[in-house]
């Protein structure tokens, strides 16, 4: 695991391309994407760009645990080329920082 969290990184860098975010983390592409999916389900990050829809949980699957809802799978190559999918800290995440 990284010595810092995805949220720390996003809050310090601002919006960042998915592939760059993955490269800056010590986790592999799949682990990093799984972490981002959990953050998205918690409302801590917002995702835009061509791969944004793949982060959304599949509607047909009912999964009770937050962040673990099944969504479309990514290939490593797809993640590492995702320069135009942007991950940004959400207002909720910024708000949480200020209210600490």
């Amino acid at each position: 695991m990284s010595s810092f969290s995805v949220v720390d990184l996003l809050q310090s860098s601002g919006p960042i391309a998915l592939n760059e975010l993955v490269m800056r983390l010590s986790e592999g592409p799949q682990e990093a994407v799984a972490a981002i999916k959990i953050l998205q389900s918690e409302g801590m990050v917002s995702i835009s760009g061509p791969l944004a829809k793949k982060f959304l949980p599949l509607k047909s699957v009912q999964e009770p645990t937050a962040g673990a809802a099944a969504s479309e799978a990514f290939t490593d190559d797809e993640i590492m080329r995702a320069s135009d999918t942007v991950i940004a800290p959400s207002r909720a995440s910024l708000g949480r920082m200020f209210s600490r």
Partner: peptide
């Protein structure tokens, strides 16, 4: 991608 990531890392910090 590698060069872009280095460049953005430098700009960020």
């Amino acid at each position: 991608i590698y060069y872009r990531t280095l460049m953005n890392l430098a700009l960020d910090y």
